[in-house]
Amino acid sequence: MYSHLLLAADGSSNATRAAIAAANLISAMPECRVEVLYVIDPAKVKDEVLHAQNHEEIEYNRRQKLMPVQEELEKRHITYHITMINGEPGSAIVEYADQHEVDLIVIGSRGLNTLREFVLGSVSHNVVKRAHCPVMIIK
């Protein structure tokens, strides 16, 4: 069905939910390449650098964030690989998908209300609006 699935993950519980849903889907298409994408948000880099003693610890903390997603995929014996890129989450996901011939993006939604979405902005809406391939939003 799909040949290259991109699972966007940020370490939140929404991302874990998305991983569970993606795992169900992938089980039905064993040929599909699975890529877990973590976008390093420039707005959060200051906090991440400040709260780590050195570069190795920053990387370790990021890997740690992806553990729940990895567990869900491993539970279902799914082979995947992890990619980390820098950029504004919404546009970075879309750009990466365009460049790497991704044919399905799976992403969790925070389920923000109108006001909070206005203030914080919605990554998933952003991706849906601008992606050139099917996007699956997990609520």
Binding site: I40, P42, V45, K46, E48, V49, L50, H55, I58, N86
Partner: peptide
């Protein structure tokens, strides 16, 4: 040097 680390990380 803190800022340099932040820029290092942002630009990989």
């Amino acid at each position: 040097l803190l800022t340099a680390s932040i820029v290092d990380d942002m630009t990989a």
